[in-house]
Computed example of a mutant assay.
Amino acid sequence: MREIKFDLATEADLPFIVAVYNQTIPSHMVTASLTPVTVSQRLPWLKAHKPDSHPIWVVRVDGKPAGWVSLSPYHPRAAYRITAEISIYIDQQFRHLGLGTKMVQHAEKAAPQLGIKNIVCLIFGANLPSLGLFTKLGYQTWGTLPKVAELGGRLMDLKILGKGIH
């Protein structure tokens, strides 16, 4: 049985976080970034995530970093503070082990203590694995932004899925 552990991300984890994020860019299915990001570019993003309101966790499998999950502010205006955007990224060598489910459930379990009542995710319509994961976990489509991004020469819809956390 594999040991799965969630640790709050630190600056020392940022190279791993960036490397896993960059793995997804060539697929033109997961992120709107078109070119790899650097550790220095992502440092302000990391520092903006506070453990007591919007944490980033690194998931480790048998002590090895395998992915990361974050809860980010959905919108900067104060009334939206009860809603967070979830992002999950799994290192390609650890995919298809059920980590996505565990990562979403970990964030959901932490949400009430963080004052978060809703979690939303923004997923491209072509990203069927992520849409399937979040739908399986009870997320519903709260909106669709048609053809708002161009990735790999294709116009992509953006699905907004959400779930109330109680």
Score class of each variant (00 low, 15 high):
residue 138 G to C: 05
residue 58 V to R: 07
residue 93 Q to R: 12
residue 91 D to K: 00
residue 59 V to I: 14
residue 82 I to F: 04
residue 136 K to I: 03
residue 96 H to C: 12
residue 85 E to N: 14
residue 127 N to K: 00
residue 112 P to L: 03
residue 70 S to P: 05
residue 74 Y to K: 05
residue 107 A to M: 04
residue 85 E to Y: 09
residue 153 G to Q: 05
residue 97 L to S: 02
residue 54 H to G: 04
residue 109 K to E: 15
residue 102 K to Q: 15
residue 112 P to Q: 07
residue 60 R to E: 00
residue 59 V to A: 12
residue 103 M to N: 11
residue 60 R to W: 11
residue 80 Y to D: 07
residue 122 L to G: 00
residue 111 A to C: 13
residue 86 I to R: 03
residue 106 H to S: 07
residue 154 R to M: 05
residue 154 R to Y: 00
residue 71 L to F: 11
residue 96 H to S: 13
residue 70 S to D: 10
residue 108 E to T: 09
residue 105 Q to Y: 08
residue 120 V to D: 04
residue 94 F to N: 03
residue 101 T to A: 15
residue 121 C to K: 03
residue 72 S to G: 09
residue 74 Y to R: 07
residue 73 P to L: 09
residue 139 Y to I: 01
residue 69 V to A: 14
residue 123 I to W: 05
residue 138 G to Y: 03
residue 150 E to K: 13
residue 133 L to S: 03
residue 56 I to L: 13
residue 151 L to M: 08
residue 56 I to E: 00
residue 155 L to D: 09
residue 92 Q to A: 06
residue 140 Q to C: 06
residue 58 V to T: 14
residue 116 I to V: 15
residue 110 A to T: 11
residue 151 L to E: 02
residue 138 G to M: 10
residue 82 I to R: 07
residue 79 A to G: 15
residue 136 K to P: 06
residue 92 Q to F: 08
residue 151 L to F: 01
residue 108 E to L: 09
residue 120 V to K: 02
residue 70 S to H: 05
residue 96 H to I: 06
residue 135 T to W: 04
residue 106 H to Y: 13
residue 108 E to Q: 15
residue 60 R to N: 08
residue 51 P to T: 08
residue 151 L to Y: 02
residue 147 K to G: 13
residue 95 R to E: 10
residue 117 K to N: 14
residue 71 L to I: 08
residue 52 D to M: 06
residue 117 K to E: 14
residue 91 D to P: 03
residue 133 L to Q: 02
residue 51 P to R: 07
residue 53 S to G: 07
residue 83 T to K: 04
residue 102 K to V: 12
residue 51 P to Y: 07
residue 67 G to A: 07
residue 95 R to L: 02
residue 97 L to W: 03
residue 107 A to H: 05
residue 138 G to P: 00
residue 146 P to N: 05
residue 138 G to H: 10
residue 100 G to P: 09
residue 85 E to P: 08
residue 71 L to W: 01
residue 142 W to P: 01
residue 122 L to Y: 14
residue 120 V to S: 01
residue 100 G to D: 01
residue 88 I to M: 06
residue 155 L to R: 11
residue 146 P to M: 07
residue 120 V to G: 03
residue 80 Y to T: 10
residue 126 A to H: 03
residue 56 I to Q: 02
residue 140 Q to P: 01
residue 124 F to R: 04
residue 99 L to M: 02
residue 91 D to Y: 00
residue 113 Q to S: 15
residue 64 K to A: 15
residue 77 R to I: 13
residue 53 S to P: 02
residue 67 G to Y: 01
residue 132 G to M: 05
residue 73 P to M: 09
residue 110 A to C: 15
residue 54 H to N: 15
residue 61 V to R: 02
residue 69 V to Y: 00
residue 123 I to V: 14
residue 93 Q to D: 13
residue 123 I to C: 06
residue 108 E to G: 14
residue 80 Y to H: 13
residue 129 P to C: 10
residue 120 V to I: 15
residue 137 L to E: 05
residue 114 L to F: 11
residue 75 H to L: 08
residue 58 V to I: 15
residue 57 W to V: 01
residue 64 K to G: 02
residue 72 S to K: 13
residue 97 L to Y: 09
residue 71 L to C: 09
residue 108 E to M: 15
residue 151 L to R: 01
residue 114 L to Y: 12
residue 107 A to L: 05
residue 91 D to F: 02
residue 134 F to A: 00
residue 81 R to S: 13
residue 62 D to F: 08
residue 131 L to R: 12
residue 91 D to S: 12
residue 100 G to W: 00
residue 143 G to C: 11
residue 92 Q to M: 09
residue 132 G to E: 12
residue 125 G to N: 06
residue 67 G to I: 03
residue 105 Q to I: 01
residue 90 I to N: 00
